[in-house]
């Protein structure tokens, strides 16, 4: 029994030694996010337009109802999102929008520093989402 106790404690002690600390000195030091991390959304652009075709699946699946899409027809006769807006204050970062998207037009980046001073700044319009 004592043997096991010592073994367990040795791990704790090992972590107390310099160089074995898991806590990083944020914000001077930042961790690399897992590729599966669900941070700020990003709309994927193509050469000429956004990849999104305004199919309305993301606002439909969104449990927080934070996505606003308005579709329209562009000069080429294609369907495109005239408005694409995410209210980040409502978003719960569940990633359903990414999962629902049939054309892989929305993905989630590793950006997690999303604090802001004004409510309006949490409204991510299409242009902003395309650049994020």
């Amino acid at each position: 029994m004592f043997k096991e106790f010592a073994k367990g404690l040795s791990i704790t002690l090992k972590h107390l030694l310099p160089g074995n600390c898991t806590t990083v000195q944020y914000p001077q030091q930042k961790l690399e996010m897992s590729p599966r991390f669900r941070g700020l959304h990003r709309l994927v652009p193509t050469q000429t337009r956004e990849k999104c075709v305004a199919c309305y699946l993301c606002p439909t699946v969104c449990p927080a109802k934070c996505i606003t899409v308005e579709s329209a027809e562009n000069e080429a006769g294609e369907k495109y999102p005239k408005v694409y807006k995410i209210d980040l204050l409502r978003c719960i970062f569940c990633g359903y929008c990414v999962e629902a998207c049939p054309v892989e037009a929305i993905e989630m980046t590793d950006a997690y520093e999303l604090a802001n001073y004004k409510r309006d700044d949490f409204n991510f319009e299409k242009e902003r989402l395309l650049k994020s």
């Binding site: 305004a54 199919c55 309305y56 439909t60 579709s71 329209a72 027809e73 369907k79």
Partner: peptide, 9 residues
């Protein structure tokens, strides 16, 4: 009605 809305909306 082209591209105006989805039926379920």
């Amino acid at each position: 009605f082209k591209f105006k809305a989805r039926p379920w909306q």
